[in-house]
Amino acid sequence: MFFTLNEIVRWFGMTVFEMCLSLVAWFTFSVLAVLKHENVLVTASWWTVFIPLFVCDGLNTYFCVIVFIRMYREAQYRVATFRFFSSIICLICMFVFKLLFCQKLNNKMGLSYSEMVSPLFIVLQIMMVKACQVY
């Protein structure tokens, strides 16, 4: 019924450290978003609310580069290259989604929701390819 930790790691292509980092960032973001929505943080903009998510993306990208270098030094060229490019493309798409969402909340751009969510479809397609390769 529930997925094991090994299955989640294989499907998402993230290490446990990256998942913990993402969970902390999303928890911090959700607390800040509620405070912003309830007008407790009146002077804060949406950009400051999204800072934990952007920092998490930067740290995950740095961690992916470190993992790529280590795997490449261990002569796992094909696995390292596939993991690196799929992870970087997912991170870039998630970053673009968060950026567009923040701009939509600030009323900076007149994007529709389908245009804003379109990077997530790329991430879902990459995850679908990874899921087919796992089993």
Rank of each mutant, 00 (worst) to 15 (best):
W26D: 01
V31T: 07
I51Y: 13
V49K: 08
W26G: 00
A33W: 08
F27T: 07
L41W: 05
S22E: 00
V34R: 13
P52F: 03
W46N: 08
L32G: 04
S30N: 13
T43V: 05
T48N: 08
W47M: 05
V24E: 01
H37K: 08
L41F: 03
L32I: 14
S22A: 09
L23A: 11
L23N: 13
L32P: 03
A33N: 04
S45C: 11
T48I: 13
V31R: 05
S30C: 09
L32H: 07
P52Q: 04
F50R: 03
V24M: 04
W46P: 10
F29Q: 03
L32N: 05
V49N: 02
E38M: 01
T48A: 06
S22R: 02
T43G: 05
T48E: 09
S30K: 12
W46A: 05
F27D: 03
W47P: 04
S22F: 02
S30T: 15
K36H: 03
L23R: 02
V49A: 02
F27A: 10
F50M: 05
L23F: 13
P52D: 09
W26V: 08
F27H: 09
F29W: 09
V49Q: 06
T28C: 14
L21P: 09
W46G: 02
E38T: 06
L32M: 14
V42T: 12
